[in-house]
């Protein structure tokens, strides 16, 4: 039977479900979020799992902290069968324990590590590629469009870096926005908020044009190498990078 198990789209709920499947020795055909459209050969199972225990605490007893971080990175990726990959990765854990990550000949391991590295790399790149605009009320506002759902990870970075600023980072694709109030950040739906992004501070245009000027000046024309630039800075990020978006 092609049993597809559903979870509510939440990381904790997925952990709950995978834990249930593993401890009952059930092999799912697939694991999908609740809005999944099944095809006719698939049998949908939507378990109502009671949130009885602190699931993170349970996982930390079962697995190394490092493993938990890896599966979180896979979870926020844009990969298709990420839930099933996490399931098989954890299924193999009891056999290899903390040597699991050396078993790259297993597809679930090599895939898990590949995806988590991909997410971690995009997170690292975006730390540099976010461009804030200063609004009239001194709030810094940025739009991003990453492949993976890294808004939470990015927010941790900017919470440390710009701790005495008010800032907002909007993921335009997922329609969520992170708002920082000099203490904590909160991630909410964009639709719950009205932002007048045209209401820029008086200095904004001056510093933006100084930055564009600096960017134009710093390149050495005798060494021009556009393909090298594009390798490091893929075009998909350009619409939100003020120094190159005019070249698109």
């Amino acid at each position: 039977m092609a049993n597809v198990y559903l979870y509510n789209g939440n990381f904790l709920n997925l952990l709950e479900l995978i834990n249930y499947l593993l401890s009952n020795n059930t092999r799912p055909f697939n694991i999908k979020p609740i809005n999944y459209n099944a095809d006719m050969f698939e049998n949908i199972i939507n378990l109502k799992l009671e949130n009885k225990q602190d699931i993170i605490k349970l996982y930390l007893q079962l697995y190394d902290k490092y493993i938990l971080k890896i599966i979180y990175y896979v979870f926020i990726s844009n990969e298709n069968n990420k839930e099933l990959i996490i399931y098989y990765y954890l299924l193999n854990y009891p056999k290899y324990k903390n040597n699991l990550n050396y078993m790259r000949n297993l597809k679930c391991v090599s895939e898990t590590l590949r995806i988590s590295q991909k997410v971690s790399r995009e997170n690292h790149k975006m730390k540099g590629f976010v461009r804030f605009v200063e609004l009239k009320n001194k709030v810094l506002y940025a739009k991003i469009k990453p492949d993976n759902d890294i808004l939470y990870l990015l927010s941790i970075h900017f919470k440390n870096r710009l701790k005495n600023e008010y800032w907002m980072i909007e993921d335009v694709e997922r329609k969520i926005i992170s708002i920082y109030d000099k203490q904590n950040f909160y991630i909410i739906k964009t639709s719950d908020l009205i932002i007048n992004a045209h209401n820029k501070s008086v200095d904004e245009d001056e510093f933006a044009s100084l930055w564009q000027l600096f960017y134009q000046t710093i390149g050495i024309k005798e060494r021009k190498n556009l393909s090298c630039r594009q390798n490091f800075m893929p075009k998909k990020y350009w619409p939100y990078l003020l120094e190159v978006r005019d070249e698109l």
Binding site: K125, G128, F129, Y215, I218, G219, I220, K221, R223, K224, N225, L226, S227, C228, R229, N231, F232, M233, L241, E243, V244
Partner: peptide
């Protein structure tokens, strides 16, 4: 890295 110039 925050950006990459035209020389890569």
């Amino acid at each position: 890295c925050h950006s990459f110039s035209s020389d890569g």
